[in-house]
Amino acid sequence: MRKRERENPCLICGHYHKYEEGEVCGICGHRMADTSERSSIQVGAFPSEILPDFLYLGSYDNASRSELLKAQGISRILNTVPSCQNLYRNSFLYHSLQDDKSLSFDDAIQFLEQCEREKARVLVHCMSGKSRSPAVVMSYLMKCKGWRLAQSYQWVKERRASVELTQVVSQQLQEYEQKIFGSNETTFPAETFSFGFAKNDAVPVPAFNTSTGPSIFDRPLDVPPQQFAFGAGQTVNQPNSGVGDVSMGGA
């Protein structure tokens, strides 16, 4: 390895690899995000707080900043990407998901429940913090808070705007919702949610907490939100709604 390379480690993972040239790190698997990923990755060193003093969501960049995590009181890390190395085993308690294709929601939730019982703050992360890790957080909200998928998505999206579920991950969440509740509660309006499809300027951005319906923030966290507004007056969780597919495609 040339001296120049030794003096210039990757600013994200700290290892020596040609990050700017797109080389994958041989130690932790870190790589430069492609153009579409970089456009939606949340800017900022701190992870997003999903549930106060307990559950945080972020990227591998966030997980690599140990001092900032300690400053937030985070002591445990749930790594949802097998190829991402757990960098600070002496400083944090790690739990890693082992399947890089299918998310093990029950495994992840078991770890998160343990963290909650022991009043430990935990970071859930993937590479960019926009698909795998948000999906795990949504699965936790469904299983442990009793919220449906649409409600869980809204809660997480409002706290981390860069969330953009892939089609594969969306499908896994739909299946998990059906496993928990016995059905998919609703179909997301196609004109409201793009979930990673090619952006269309004519498609409105979801309008959260508008005056068209009660906000989920008016309820305690342990009370499942019953009704709220999506987009232009669209309402989810209609009474007597039938079983439907949650249409959440992704790139």
Rank of each mutant, 00 (worst) to 15 (best):
A120V: 02
A198E: 13
S96H: 08
C10H: 08
Q178M: 12
L165C: 12
S162A: 14
E21T: 01
Q167T: 13
P220K: 05
S241Y: 06
Q171M: 10
L55G: 10
Y56E: 03
G213A: 15
K179F: 03
E67N: 12
D100V: 02
R219A: 09
P239F: 05
S131H: 11
Q227H: 04
R219H: 03
V156C: 04
C144S: 15
Y153M: 11
L11E: 13
R117V: 01
I180C: 06
D61E: 08
F230S: 00
L112Q: 06
R159C: 04
M142D: 03
D61G: 03
F92R: 07
F230K: 00
R117A: 09
F197R: 15
G73F: 05
Q42H: 04
T186R: 11
R31A: 12
G242C: 10
K157T: 02
F188W: 13
G242K: 15
R65P: 03
Q98K: 13
M32G: 00
V203G: 01
R38Q: 12
G196W: 04
S102E: 12
T186E: 14
H30I: 03
F217W: 13
M142S: 04
V246H: 12
G242V: 10
S152A: 15
R31M: 10
L11T: 10
Q172K: 11
T35H: 08
Y88K: 06
E158L: 04
C28W: 04
D53S: 13
L69E: 08
V136C: 08
S183H: 14
I180Q: 07
A207N: 09
N240R: 14
